[in-house]
Computed example of a mutant assay.
Amino acid sequence: MAGTEEFVEADNAEVIIARIEHKSRKIESLLKQFKPVEALKTALEVSPPKTRDERCKSANWIVVHRAIMAIKDVDGMFSLLDPEYYDILMKYLYRGLYAADRHTCDQCLRIHEKLTEKAGLGCTLRALADTVNIF
């Protein structure tokens, strides 16, 4: 049944945050090696369990945001990014637009334009319609 997804309760939030911190260290290492697309893949592929805990969502967004902002060559990114990441990336782009920071919004809109060209409008619609996996 739709909407009956199980969520991790707040008492496990510390475990989730520890996983996010581990992911953050891995992403920072990739960025130091000048591998921003690999950092983005890592940020997108290792999503935390579904949780209602805002601390976990915010901590994960910070990690994904760091990877998104490191992308300089958007066209080159799509030559290395597998289509399996497109829907997840689109959801985070909307989270970035919601953040309302001008620099973040500019980057998210640049990527959004190219992602829509590459993946089509279905990717956008799936991101907007998914009310369960809200990052």
Rank of each mutant, 00 (worst) to 15 (best):
A39Q: 05
D73H: 06
K26N: 09
Q33C: 03
H112Y: 12
T4Y: 15
S58I: 10
A13C: 08
V74T: 10
V46D: 03
L109H: 08
S58V: 02
V15S: 14
T131P: 02
S24M: 02
E113M: 14
T42N: 13
A10S: 15
R102Q: 15
P36A: 13
C123A: 10
S79A: 12
Y98W: 11
E6Q: 12
Q107G: 07
E45K: 11
T51K: 01
L97R: 14
C56M: 01
H103M: 10
K23H: 06
G120K: 00
L109C: 07
M69D: 08
A43Y: 07
A18C: 07
P49M: 04
T42V: 13
K118L: 09
R126N: 02
K35L: 07
A39E: 01
M77A: 07
A10H: 10
R95F: 09
K72F: 12
R52T: 09
K41E: 08
I71H: 08
Q107E: 03
Y94L: 11
V64W: 04
E117S: 10
V37E: 06
I71Q: 01
N133I: 00
W61K: 02
V46I: 13
H112I: 01
R110N: 12
Q33D: 13
L30K: 08
L81K: 02
P48Y: 01
P36K: 06
A99P: 02
N12T: 09
L115T: 04
N60Q: 07
A59K: 07
M1T: 09
L31G: 06
W61D: 05
D101N: 12
G76R: 03
K57S: 07
R110I: 05
R19T: 12
Y94R: 11
S24R: 12
G122K: 07
A129Q: 13
S24N: 11
I62C: 06
I71D: 08
S29H: 13
L115G: 00
I134L: 14
R102G: 11
K50P: 14
K50V: 03
R19G: 14
G120Y: 02
L109D: 02
C108V: 13
A59S: 12
T116Q: 08
L31K: 00
A67N: 00
I88R: 13
E21D: 15
L121D: 00
E54Q: 11
G3F: 06
C56L: 02
R19P: 07
F78M: 02
K23V: 05
C123D: 07
M69V: 01
V8P: 01
E117T: 10
I62A: 15
D101P: 04
H112A: 11
E5I: 13
G76H: 00
Y85I: 01
R66C: 03
K35A: 05
L121M: 11
L89V: 00
I71R: 08
S29G: 10
V74D: 03
E28P: 07
L40R: 01
E14R: 10
H22F: 12
D53E: 09
